[in-house]
Structure formats: structure tokens, C-alpha cells
Design a protein around this nucleic acid. Structure first.
Length: 427
RNA sequence: GUGGCUGUGGCUCAGUCGGUUAGAGCGUUGGACUGUGGCUCCAAAGGUCGGGGGUUCGAAUCCCCUCAGCCACCCCA
């Protein structure tokens, strides 16, 4: 077959799939501990949702959306991010009538038409949270703490939490104009990219690595000088709460995020271990988005992390996750004992024991080899001889000890054996 | 979207001044051990040499196009 997975997509197998599952399970437990509820929204939406939500001028809307017409002529788009759909669902289902803030989490694939490279795919997975309906700085702190806690729980150290405030529309406007004015006088010192950035998204000039540009922006105005009193107080409270909780952060006035809807608090978690695609996740406040979609003015905040990037960071740092894909018992039944073995196998499973058998016609030796490879604890061996006696052999694969047992005693044996072992793990 | 590097069994790679049936290790399966794992040895299966076109008596090898991966830019998850 010469059909391959489309560009920028891939199959997630074995270790990677185990890790992804583990990350998601860990996240869900934590989300629920923090009082967040799951929400599942469609994988595609009306194109207009993203155009209006993310902003026409953003890269995502300009060139990265998977947009298509369906047979009814509707323009639909595979979601490039999760916030706009959640806000749409919030309005469509009248969720403003619930107790606010409404705290939601999601997990799902996102799509962006970009040139793939390590850590960047056209279909990728995100885990995210949204807290809709509170302007309280405490919710900013909670949401950030949740992000940091999750990544720490996954064993990721040496993370940088970059923190900034984009201000509200009023203070951002005066800042943006001031910065543009400043850069206009520096044009001859800027690289070609930055000449363009100066017009389109002046904050990006702060990110430029070219030495001339860095010098040019040395005395540039900072957004912090333009925050209104409310924005300034809000940010101070957030920082204070993070300090109290021992969350360290890097104030980064150059932190600009890719969506137009952000206001006030914005943040991004970066790692040194991933090369160019070093952002594991990020988010911020979007106090204007609900209103933009026709709802009442409603403050909100959220973030998302990229599951593949978290997987990569975990691998890069050599973190060992307690992945649990272990078979307790392998039933090695041969010849006419297979039927009885199959019966026994499923009986064990009924009692919560993970068990498997051979379906490839392997010899007993082959089944033993397979058991060894699967790292099973015990093999139950049944052949014609045992079948006649209504017994089976139980082999401990760690010690090599083997004993004969009545089939009727197996369930009791298994329950005793694995209760002990599992209790041992819990200590 | 721009630029650079790469593309040979499932995986990691050899093989190129063009020359008969394309190799190895790992992995898989079987055997030595006829009903017993890990070590060792033996064997087998497995390849449109990413795809298409061209040059040539002859192409994995040279040329063109294309697809894909990686890296950087852009931007972000």
C-alpha cells in the first residue's frame, strides 16, 4: 500500500500512546480536583467563529486554517484552537445561567495548516481549561497554578513561566501607538523582518535576535508604563498570589500571544529541551470575547497545552512515567486444552486481573517466549495432560517456580496473589 | 509560505567514479530443547531501493519533477 498518513499527521503508537493516555488521565484528575468540568465541542465549526474570535489579521486565520465547503455550501473549519468553540458553546447553551465562573476543561485534536517540523504538526492534541465569568485576579492565579502543577506532576522541571499583561483595549491602544511611533524613528536600524513587524505587530520586534534590532528597542516604551490603574492593580494581585503560592515566573513584556482576543494577564510555559518549538502551552485572559460573539460583557481566562510537546519534553528530559500496561497472567494453553484455557482466561479477567493468551498458533515454547517478552508475572500452562486431571500448572516467571493446581482453585489463587501485589504497590 | 539537509526490509544503517540474484545488525517466526521463557547457535519470512519521468545496452547509484521527514525562518501547541 502506498497511501500514507497525510502530511503533518501521524499515528500515535505504543510508548507514545501510553504516555499520551497517562498525561490525559493525570490532567483530568487534577482538573476535577480544581473543580473543572469536561466539555466536548465539535471538531469543526463555522469558519466565521474563528475569523471573528481569533482575529482576521492573525497568522492562524490568514494562512493556517483547514477550511472547506460542505455539500450544503457552508464554509466550515477544523478547529485551530479550543477557546472560541467553548465560548460559542457557552452562549449557545445559555451557560451564563449556571453559577459563575463556569470552569471547564477539554481534550481534543486541533488543526493548523503549517509546514510540519518536530513539535509542530497539522493535527495535534491539546488539553485546556477555560474559566468563564470572573474578573477576579484569584482565578488568574488558580488557572496558572493549575498549569504549573500539571506540568510538575508530569515530572517536567526547569520550566519557564513567562508572564505579561496585555492591558485592556484602552491601555493597549495608547501603548501600541507609542511603540509604533518609537519604531518609526528606528527604521534604518531594523532588519527587514522587523520593518514589517513594526507595522503589523510591533511587539514582535522585542523577540528579534538580530543585534541591531535589540539595540534599537533598548529604550522602547514598555506596556507596563501604559497600564491603566485597573490593569496595573489586577496584575499586581496576580503576581502577589503567585508569589504566595511559590510559583516563580519571568516577567516578559515582550510576550505576545497569537490570538487577538487576549487582554490583561497572558502567560506561556517554555522549556529549553525542544529547540525552536519551545512553548509547551500558554493562555491568558480574554475579557472581550464573549461580548464579541454577542453575549453580555463577560470576563474569562484559559490556557491550553500541546500534548505532543509535553510528550517530547518528557522524553527529552528522560522522565520515567509510571506507565501501567502490564499483563498479570498469560494463559498458555495448547491443543485441546485451548478451549478450557480461553474459559479460564476470561474468568480471570472478570475478577479484574489483566490476562492474555496466544492467538497465533504458537508452540508452548513460543508462548513462553511471548510471556517473557510481555513481562508477565505468571503463566498458567494447560495441555492435554492437565485437561484430563482438571488441573493446570502455574509458573512464576520471576523465580521460575512452578506448581500444579486444581482449576477450581485458580480464581482464589489469583485474587490472593494479585491483591497482595497490588496492595504492595499502594504503600 | 521561504531556505537548507535527508529518503534502501518493521527499526538503525551499509552499498554510489552506473555493471549480473540489493546486504548487515536489531526485531519477527521456527528449530537445536518432539510440553516450558530469559543466554547461545542455526534457519526462514520480510525490499515496487519514497513515487513518477528521463539518460543508458544496463540506474538504489546520474538528471528533472513530485511526495514525505528533519532543521531554520515565520509563528505557535
Amino acid at each position: 500500500m502506498n497511501i500514507k498518513a497525510p502530511r503533518g499527521t501521524s499515528d500515535i503508537l505504543f510508548d507514545k500512546a501510553d504516555m499520551k493516555q497517562f498525561i490525559e488521565k493525570t490532567a483530568v484528575i487534577l482538573f476535577e480536583q480544581f473543580g473543572y468540568h469536561p466539555i466536548i465541542t465539535p471538531t469543526f465549526e463555522h469558519t466565521e467563529l474563528f475569523q471573528r474570535g481569533i482575529g482576521e489579521s492573525t497568522d492562524i486565520v490568514q494562512k493556517e486554517m483547514y477550511t472547506f465547503k460542505d455539500k450544503g455550501g457552508r464554509s466550515l473549519t477544523l478547529r485551530p484552537e479550543g477557546t472560541a468553540p467553548v465560548v460559542r458553546a457557552y452562549l449557545e447553551n445559555g451557560l451564563a445561567s449556571k453559577s459563575l465562573p463556569l470552569k471547564l476543561y477539554y481534550c481534543g485534536q486541533m488543526f493548523r495548516y503549517e509546514r510540519p517540523q518536530a513539535g509542530r504538526y497539522r493535527e495535534f492534541w491539546q488539553l485546556g481549561v477555560e474559566a468563564i465569568g470572573s474578573r477576579d485576579a484569584f482565578i488568574d492565579a488558580e488557572v496558572i497554578l493549575l498549569l504549573v502543577t500539571l506540568l510538575k506532576k508530569l515530572g517536567l522541571k526547569d520550566l519557564e513561566l513567562h508572564l505579561n499583561s496585555m492591558g485592556c483595549p484602552e491601555c493597549r491602544k495608547s501603548f501600541s501607538e507609542s511603540l509604533k511611533g518609537y519604531l518609526a524613528n528606528k527604521t534604518e536600524h531594523l532588519c527587514d523582518d522587523c520593518k514589517r513587524r513594526a507595522r503589523v505587530n510591533p511587539l514582535r520586534v522585542f523577540d528579534c535576535k538580530v543585534r541591531g534590532c535589540q539595540a534599537a528597542i533598548k529604550n522602547a516604551p514598555l506596556i507596563s508604563n501604559f497600564w491603566c490603574e485597573d490593569c496595573s492593580n489586577h496584575f499586581e494581585t496576580v503576581k502577589g498570589l503567585l508569589d504566595d503560592m511559590g510559583v516563580s515566573y519571568i516577567l516578559n513584556p515582550a510576550l505576545v500571544r497569537g490570538f487577538d482576543y487576549y487582554t490583561k494577564t497572558t502567560f506561556e510555559v517554555r522549556t529549553q529541551s525542544l529547540g525552536a518549538q519551545n512553548a509547551l502551552g500558554g493562555g491568558g485572559r480574554y475579557d472581550g470575547l464573549v461580548e464579541e460573539f454577542g453575549g453580555l460583557s463577560t470576563p474569562a481566562i484559559g490556557w491550553a497545552i500541546g500534548t505532543e510537546r509535553v510528550v517530547m519534553a518528557i522524553e527529552e528530559l528522560g522522565v520515567k512515567l509510571p506507565l501501567n500496561s502490564h499483563i498479570d497472567v498469560f494463559v498458555a494453553a495448547i491443543d485441546e486444552a485451548r478451549k478450557k484455557g480461553f474459559n479460564l482466561l476470561n474468568n480471570l479477567r472478570k475478577h479484574g486481573i489483566s490476562a492474555d493468551m496466544d492467538y497465533a498458533g504458537r508452540s508452548l515454547k513460543g508462548q513462553m517466549k511471548l510471556s517473557n517478552k510481555l513481562n508477565v508475572s505468571y503463566v498458567i500452562i494447560m495441555g492435554p495432560e492437565e485437561l484430563r486431571k482438571n488441573t493446570c500448572l502455574i509458573r512464576n516467571m520471576d523465580t521460575g517456580e512452578q506448581s500444579e493446581m486444581q482449576i477450581s482453585d485458580i480464581t482464589r489463587w489469583a485474587k490472593d496473589t494479585f491483591k497482595v501485589r497490588k496492595a504492595g504497590f499502594d504503600v
